[in-house]
Design a protein around this nucleic acid. Structure first.
Lengths: 252, 252
DNA sequence: CGGAACGTTGATAGCTATCAATCGACGTGG
DNA sequence: CCACGTCGATTGATAGCTATCAACGTTCCG
């Protein structure tokens, strides 16, 4: 039955193959040729990582560029005493291993089963601006957006309350999952455990639980069975001051 | 007398001109030609920003690349109710306006008088790897390091106590000021007000004050007259788990 | 059926924020 | 020369948010 589940997923691979094209297409205008390239990449054989497994990046090798086409992963660091902090969520359509200067203590852990494809072709395309202008621009935009989300993350952790942080996170996820087609009626897949939310937002599991119940009681969200529905986007917005990063189409 | 002070600073401009070369030289091996280039840039006419002034970046223009040769600035965001969060400290030798994807709410404020030079020449050099291999590598390394410090910042804010955060910050500053020659006997210039420390570390001014006094009482630091001396680096290290980012010399 | 992972709840402690007031240093204007 | 305002640092009192500890419920799965 487990196998059957996996099989069903693999049958949907055409849908997931669109992730990269959809994500990058939301960041820059892509030509037909470019879209075709991204689809080809998206349909190429994918590596599968089990939930909870670590995605190792051998320190001294050139890290192969990859794109996630399904599943969630997290970049995190761990302190000696076991405290953990997630820096960044990696969602479908996102690149893996983009960041240079990764510190030794940093690891990537899969939060769900993750499927990723080799993105070498895309990386090469980025280098040839003339041939692939849209792809190059989109990848720059993606990097800029990652950076902006990291800034958001900092101010969330530094200056916002638990309730505000959580509202901010939910809106960020809504924003990021939209271009890859995973948002339906303000409802998104939500595979994060409460412990993962805590590691992301710098809170204890217990407090995450209580804050979630506050939001439920306020009729702001519904969270159950791995799905999060935002009932009151305005309230989330007001509480969190989330502002979508402006993608700069005319970026040089 | 104030004027005389400024004059004295300007006379030292040759020293400050070295900032860029020293910083980049610590990140990659530079040829004589490259060092000469960076010195030339460092001695070019500099723009001066007063303490507390904002460095505006007109949103819709290509932002001119600049390098700080003296003074401290901070990249920060502000919430509606006045809460502020500093993302990043900009120190001598650092680039200004590198980050794409800056959100609208983001501002750069000078914490001291800041002198910056136009870095267009350096930016251009980066694009020609063949001609300026060292400069190109160093700039990539610098970007990677900025990124790593941002990660540090996140885990500081998310998972560390006030004491730990502060120890971590001090070691980061020690590390970053070393290549530009501003560290003497574990003592560094320290122009941050306690309020700025709070905005950086996500703490209230009052608590910053009390934590500093704890560190003084522990004979870990001396902080007075704009200068911070670290008496017990081992204690700071143990408390903060700071680990210097590894610069990868063989980075492709 | 037992175990593991996850979620939930209550009680308690503790870290940090907030409010308010004081102090010293500095620069300004009378 | 002195009064005065501002800024930064400091201190005390108090409140409050969040962590920690412990226990229990639920679901899923071997």
């Amino acid at each position: 039955m487990r196998d059957l589940g996996v099989q069903r997923r693999l049958q949907q691979s055409d849908v997931r193959a669109e992730s990269i094209a959809m994500r990058l297409g939301s960041l820059a205008k892509l030509s037909e040729t470019e879209i075709a390239l991204l689809f080809r990449v998206g349909r190429s054989p994918c590596e599968v990582h089990q939930a909870r497994s670590l995605i190792q990046t051998p320190a001294d090798q050139p890290t192969p560029q990859r794109f996630v086409i399904s599943g969630w992963a997290a970049r995190m660091r761990e302190l000696r005493d076991g405290r953990r902090q997630i820096y960044q969520l990696i969602l479908p359509g996102d690149a893996l291993n983009w960041l240079p200067g990764a510190a030794a203590a940093e690891i990537i852990q899969c939060l769900t089963m993750v499927q990723a494809v080799n993105g070498m072709a895309v990386t090469l395309a980025m280098r040839d601006r003339t041939m692939w202008p849209g792809v190059a621009t989109a990848l720059e935009q993606a990097a800029a957006q990652d950076h902006a989300f990291l800034f958001d993350h900092v101010s969330r952790l530094g200056r916002q309350s638990a309730y505000e942080r959580m509202a901010h996170l939910f809106l960020e996820l809504h924003f990021r999952l939209t271009p890859v087609g995973l948002v339906h009626e303000n409802s998104i897949p939500f595979p994060l455990t409460q412990e993962a939310i805590g590691d992301l937002l710098g809170l204890s599991v217990v407090h995450v639980n209580r804050t979630l119940q506050l939001m439920r009681r306020d009729d702001v969200i519904i969270l159950r069975q791995g799905r999060l529905t935002m009932l009151d986007m305005a309230a989330l917005q007001t509480a969190s001051e989330f502002r979508p990063p402006k993608t700069a189409p005319g970026f040089a």
